[in-house]
C-alpha cells in the first residue's frame, strides 16, 4: 500500500503522458488537460507544504529557545505580515498601490536582487582562488571567461583600439565567435548528454526500477 500504489500511479501516469504524444485524440488528449490542472494544484499545495513546514520549524525553534530563535520570530512575523495583507486584499491583492504590491516592490524585489548581486563578489573571490592557468584546460577556461567578460563591456573594444587590433580581433568580435560557435558546440554536447540521461532515468522511473523518490520504509 505504501510503496506499491505510488509505483502503480507513477507507471500509469508516465505511460499515459507518453501515449498522448502519439495518440493526441480522446481520451488521451483529455488526460493531458486534466493532468496539467492537477499538476498545478499539487504544485501549489507543495509550496504551501513548504511554507507551513517553515512556520512549524521556526515556531519550534522559538518554543525551545534554540540559538537564533529571534531570527525565526522575524521569519514568522514577515510571513504573517505579507500573508495577512495578501489575503485581506482579496483577488486584487497584487494590484498597484496595494500593501502586497508595496511589500513586493520595496522589500521582496530589493532583497532578491541584492542576494543575487552578492554572488558577483563570491564568484569573483572564487575565481581569484580557482583560476590558475595550471594546465591547458584551465587556461582555455580562463581565456574564454576573460574574453566573454571583456568583450561585453565598452572598455574591451576601447583597449583593442588603443593597441591597434584589427577589427576582426576586437574582444567583442572574439566574444561573439566564442558564444556563437565553440560555446554552441559545447552546450550541444552537454544538452544531448543530459537529455539522454534524463530519458533513461525517466524510463527507469516509469518501469519502477528507480524508486529512490519514495524514500525509506
Amino acid at each position: 500500500m505504501r510503496r506499491e500504489v505510488p509505483l502503480i500511479i507513477t507507471a500509469v501516469v508516465g505511460v499515459i503522458f507518453v501515449i498522448q504524444y502519439f495518440i493526441p485524440h480522446a481520451p488521451f488528449n483529455q488526460f493531458n488537460s486534466w493532468f496539467s490542472d492537477w499538476f498545478a494544484i499539487i504544485g501549489a499545495c507543495a509550496i504551501w507544504l513548504g511554507a507551513l513546514n517553515l512556520m512549524r520549524i521556526s515556531a519550534d525553534k522559538i518554543y525551545r529557545r534554540r540559538s537564533g530563535w529571534g531570527y525565526a520570530a522575524i521569519i514568522i512575523a514577515s510571513f504573517l505580515l505579507i500573508a495577512t495583507i495578501g489575503f485581506a486584499g482579496g483577488s486584487q491583492f497584487r494590484d498597484p498601490g496595494t500593501g502586497f504590491d508595496w511589500l513586493y516592490t520595496w522589500v521582496y524585489s530589493p532583497l532578491s536582487a541584492t542576494m543575487f548581486a552578492l554572488l558577483a563578489f563570491f564568484v569573483a573571490s572564487a575565481s581569484y582562488r580557482a583560476f590558475r592557468a595550471r594546465n591547458l584546460e584551465a587556461t582555455l577556461l580562463l581565456l574564454a571567461a576573460f574574453f566573454v567578460m571583456i568583450g561585453r563591456v565598452p572598455v574591451g573594444d576601447a583597449i583593442g583600439s588603443f593597441i591597434h587590433l584589427p577589427e576582426s580581433l576586437m574582444p567583442s568580435k572574439i566574444t561573439i565567435w566564442i558564444m556563437g560557435f565553440i560555446n554552441s558546440a559545447g552546450q550541444r554536447a552537454i544538452m544531448i548528454g543530459i537529455a539522454l540521461g534524463i530519458v533513461s532515468t525517466s524510463l527507469r522511473i516509469i518501469l519502477g526500477i528507480e524508486r529512490s523518490y519514495l524514500g525509506g520504509d
Binding site: V123, S127, E137, A138, L140, L141, L142, L143, A144, A145, F146, F147, V148, M149, R152, I178, M179, I182, N183, A185, G186, Q187, I190
Partner: peptide, 9 residues
C-alpha cells in the same frame, strides 16, 4: 572547458 569559461563569464 571553453564552454564552461564562456558560461562563467
Amino acid at each position: 572547458m571553453i564552454t564552461f569559461g564562456a558560461s562563467f563569464g
